[in-house]
Design a protein around this nucleic acid. Structure first.
Length: 711
RNA sequence: GGCGUGGUAGCUCAGCCGGUUAGAGCGCAGGAUUCAUAAUCCUGAGGUCGGGAGUUCAAGUCUCCCCCACGCUACCA
């Protein structure tokens, strides 16, 4: 495979219902940004696409809750997210949004084309319909009692309390969130993408990198967990996936299609198409041909995402693209894992996050510090942990003490000895090697050594190994510190000033090289170094290539006679107080979030008759064993005195079978029997559950007879 | 339960298709040094490579079983 002549790089579109946090940043934006900045520095033709994902039921719901329109919600968060990206230095060529007209047109074009080619199947299903509102209800618009955990406000697709995936028809006493009425089931038609029909080529594409009988990419270059996850889906058997919903916030199904009324594209269908519409918009603005970036064989498509998006980008979106025809498929999908915060999962609702916009307020002009730490803890292979202490250590030890200090030393000494002018040197003079004291070395051989390091640096970035690349930068800086230490200009200046000139000149070459090399990771610092060196700012137009060419030809990167500016500190230390402040803020927001946790609404009124239908009895567990092939289920034998029952209960997460034999319980004794995992369950054991999911048995006082009525 | 990914020094992690005394950064201990934001440089201590069995002349690296973490998935009447 030839190296691509141009790149189209995308970062997952953030969902516009909340601000941006560190997990987003380190997962899908920092790596993409470093990658595209490096490509630009390498003189490549690259377009970097981003934008807000603004459709879907979750946004509609949020709007209803806050009493505003969905448009107001997405306007607010789009602006907020866009600003955060700009300020933290994510260099999108365009940051678009899926509510734009061009996106609606593009998505509809996709739908239309796929529809005409017969890529969809139609299916009639029963869906809840709100008669007073006159519309079908998307999963998210139905709330009811969770059949698993009894949480009274579970959504139709998911219970946020216990995390179970649900379907609306499973909910107990469902209610429309629009009218509050009980919805009725009606048949409705939807379009489905029959993923299972694409399994063969998808498998070849994922596991062998083969597409249409040709080699498309090297699967070895993909992350293992990405391929593993895809294989897992393929092996489990792909299912048809609904691509439309009954909803009023989203992209319309093209009106000329029969039955399209009231139907919108499912968000996950229109979101990735957003990459394409954004590219079109960018192309219009810049008088370019968007198709070159999506359809030309020599363009490489790369999607940066978090692990939650693997299936969409590796299986579903490729199916859409290929069904349309003529589009490139991704040559790599470098998905990252998740970033935890101080050992716990990042959670917006629990107030456990580091928000980018708040960080920027607390630490103005410290964008690169956060970027640096973000790269350092990038969850490339497994989940990682953001800690404020780790952030402080990284900034203070590595940026201030190592990199910043090295550059500062060079600048201070150059100003002190040469009045800020890069000294002319005699290249034949040897100096002490930075690596091992006592060995001699020369200016030109050290520049070649620098070339080698930068060459490795380039290889790391090409392999998406950003952390190794970052480490290489620090190594260069460390080498610079060693160079100074081993040659001690502050001593030698009195005895051997010509030798010192060589050392200082070399140091300045290092700093100049760093001003370029540091850029993909720390663009703000790059600008600052250029400023201090009185060199023109980096425009990201092939400067890294120029740098490497110069080094390989033995040319200097900064010329003798050039005058630099006075030294200034690039980074300042993060104090313990600042860290404590952040930790306190984090704890406070957690407490606030816990306090704001929704008041547990009671279920709707039940009449006495409703209650009397239940026959509750005291009983005792006389035997318990695990249900095979189930994590949470125990098969219990309950003695009611007058008979024994077999009951399956989902309590294995809290109780070991041995520990509950002899436990007094209350049983719903007249519940309709149900077969679970092959065992018929004849009743239900009552348990209290706290908000962390901990369970506790409900029982009559000790010594009560078995089989007594509870009411 | 099934599938996937990880489990290497106190902490964060490198260790490619198996091959000499298992590496780096931070932290820690000792020393050198003062140009620099007490920064820098050198040296050192510290690991039965999650546990067990096996293949092999040789295993952190391959195979099997088990344990733990994370994710997807099934089960919660």
């Amino acid at each position: 495979m030839n190296p691509p002549s141009r790149y189209l790089v995308t970062s997952a579109l953030p969902y516009a219902n909340g601000p941006l946090h560190i997990g987003h940043l380190a997962g899908a934006y920092l790596p993409a940004d470093a990658f595209v900045r490096f490509l630009r520095l390498s003189g490549k033709d690259v377009v970097y696409i981003g934008g807000s994902d603004e459709h879907g039921a979750a946004i509609k719901i949020k709007a209803l809750k806050e009493g505003v329109t969905p448009q107001e919600i997405v306007d607010k968060y789009h602006a907020m997210i866009k600003k955060a990206f700009e300020e933290i230095g994510i260099s999108f060529d365009i940051y678009h949004r899926t509510t734009e007209k061009i996106h609606h047109e593009t998505s509809q074009d996709f739908f239309r084309t796929l529809y005409k080619s017969g890529a969809f199947t139609e299916l009639e299903t029963e869906q809840y319909f709100d008669e007073s509102a006159g519309q079908f209800l998307a999963d998210r618009f139905i709330i009811g009692t969770c059949p698993r955990c009894q949480h009274p406000e579970a959504y139709g697709d998911q219970c946020e309390n216990c995390g179970s995936t649900l379907s609306p028809t499973e909910l107990i006493s469902p209610k429309s969130t629009i009218s509050g009425n009980t919805p009725v089931l009606r048949t409705t038609k939807h379009w489905y993408l029959p993923l299972e029909e694409h399994e063969t080529w998808l498998r070849a594409y994922i596991t062998h990198g083969m597409l249409d009988g040709k080699e498309h990419h090297y699967p070895e270059e993909w992350k293992k967990h990405v391929i593993g996850q895809c294989k897992s889906w393929l092996d489990a058997g792909l299912q048809p996936r609904a691509i439309t919903r009954d909803l009023d916030w989203g992209v319309d199904v093209p009106p000329e299609i029969e039955g399209s009324e009231g139907k919108k594209l499912y968000v996950w269908m229109d979101a990735p198409i957003g990459y394409i519409s954004a590219t079109k918009e960018w192309a219009q603005q810049h008088k370019k041909d968007w198709e070159l970036y999506w359809k030309d064989e020599e363009t490489a498509l790369v999607h940066f995402i978090g692990k939650d998006n693997i299936v969409f980008h590796c299986l579903i979106f490729p199916v859409i693209l290929k069904s349309y025809g003529g589009f490139n498929l991704p040559v790599n999908v470098p998905a990252n894992q998740f970033v935890n915060l101080e050992g716990q999962k990042v959670s917006t609702s629990k107030g456990w996050a580091v928000w980018i916009h708040e960080y920027l307020k607390s630490f103005p002009d410290k964008q690169d510090e956060l970027r640096y730490y973000g790269f350092k803890i990038m969850p490339e292979l497994k989940d990682s942990d953001f800690t404020w202490k780790g952030y402080q250590d990284a900034v203070n030890n590595e940026l201030v003490n190592n990199l910043g200090n090295f550059i500062h030393r060079v600048l201070v000494l150059t100003n002190k000895y040469y009045n800020g002018v890069v000294p002319v040197i005699d290249e034949s003079i040897s100096i002490n090697a930075p690596l091992e004291l006592g060995l001699p070395t020369w200016h030109d051989s050290e520049l070649l050594d620098l070339f080698d390091r930068l060459h490795d640096y380039r290889t790391y970035i090409k392999d998406f190994d950003f952390r190794s690349a970052l480490k290489m930068l620090m190594e260069i800086s460390t080498t610079g510190n060693q160079l100074l230490q081993n040659n001690e200009p502050w001593k030698q200046e009195k005895t051997d000033p010509d030798e010192v000139k060589v050392v200082m000149n070399l140091g300045l070459q290092y700093v100049t090289a760093l001003s370029v090399a540091v850029r993909p990771f720390m663009p703000f610092t790059s600008d600052k170094i250029r400023e201090l060196l009185a060199l023109p700012p980096i425009k990201e137009k092939g400067e890294f290539v120029d740098l490497m060419d110069a080094l390989s030809e033995g040319k200097h990167l900064i010329a003798a006679g050039h005058k630099i500016k006075k030294a200034q500190h690039l980074f300042t230390k993060i104090t313990d107080e600042e860290i404590q402040l952040q930790m306190d803020a984090l704890m406070n927001s957690k407490v606030e979030a816990a306090g704001a946790e929704e008041i547990q609404h009671l279920k709707s009124i039940a009449t006495f008759d409703d209650f009397s239908k239940l026959d509750l009895r005291t009983g005792k567990i006389t035997a318990a064993e695990k249900v095979e092939k189930a994590d949470k289920l125990l098969k219990l034998t309950v003695d009611l005195g007058f008979e024994k029952r077999t009951v399956v209960s989902g309590i294995a997460g809290t109780y070991d079978p041995e520990s509950i034999v002899g436990q007094d319980i209350v049983l719903v004794a007249n519940l309709a029997p149900r077969k679970i995992k092959g065992v018929v369950s004849q009743g239900m054991v009552l348990l209290a559950e706290d908000k962390d999911g901990k369970l506790g048995f409900v029982s009559a006082p000790e010594g009560w007879a078995k089989g007594d009525v509870v009411r």
